[in-house]
Design a protein around this nucleic acid. Structure first.
Lengths: 133, 133
DNA sequence: TAATAATTGCAATTGTGTTGCACTTGTTTT
DNA sequence: AAAACAAGTGCAACACAATTGCAATTATTA
């Protein structure tokens, strides 16, 4: 499974990359470097960092910046090659601080004023998630 | 002008606050701490930082997290007291890297799945701005 | 197998956000 | 107006995330 994805995205297969991708697939959550560090205590922080960068570049994950100081990453689902962002909004819970994908919703399209060209859009909704209600 | 705003928002008038607010009004741009540091080399970084925090708290500016690692701030226009975020999307230019407010557009409302409560929403469109076309 | 390129681990640096505390400045009370 | 108090500022220091350099290792290709 992970090998297929890595192959398709033209990313060389290495243990670290398989581990990380597997973890993303398994958790199906939005994750930051600090969480991944804890999940893989034996792995080097910088290697995880660079693996994330590689994944981002190759369209395996995409970065999400919620209000915090740490960059988060989620698996790409409906990402376009030319347009490397998901079409769904993200939800940031004010209680548990978890960030999640609202995959059932499409980001509505926007009529940009003249002169602006569109590449991608990011939408983050803040509130309280079902678990924390 | 700046004095009126500060008074209305119940923020004490100090030179730093006037300077910073004036700068925001004049530039009418989204600004980060690093830019403000450069703009006011004689002022202390922490003072600017705390002034931003005060402005944010009092509803004079609101924070915007675009893809970068640095928090940006823009003057509030249509911010609500109970819901301290603008209702317009932001535009992040991939060439000049400037962030701006698309004040003419409203963020479309979203039907959240059951169990989620809504507090606020942020929407950032990436592309190329008119100046960089 | 030799040569080459990609990946990793470690050390170190930079950048951004944040706090503590002493000092100054402004505001209020007597 | 002076004393008491509260708010704002400047400096030092710290916390943490992001990033780079480089040598060592591992994989790929000629």
């Amino acid at each position: 499974m992970t090998e297929e994805i890595l192959n398709k995205k033209e990313v060389r297969i290495t243990p670290m990359r398989q581990l990380l991708l597997e973890f993303f697939l398994e958790k199906n959550k939005v994750l930051g470097l600090s969480e991944l560090e804890k999940a893989f205590p034996k792995s080097d922080r910088v290697t995880i960092y660079r693996t994330l960068k590689t994944f981002e570049e190759k369209g395996i994950v995409h970065g999400i910046s919620n209000g915090t100081t740490e960059m988060k990453y989620a698996l790409c689902h409906d990402c376009q090659v030319a347009n490397h962002s998901d079409f769904h909004p993200h939800f940031s819970c004010l209680k548990c601080e978890e960030l999640s994908c609202l995959e059932s919703i499409f980001i509505p399209s926007i009529d940009l004023p003249g002169g602006y060209s569109f590449e991608k859009v990011e939408m983050t909704i803040q509130g309280v998630c079902p678990k924390c209600q």
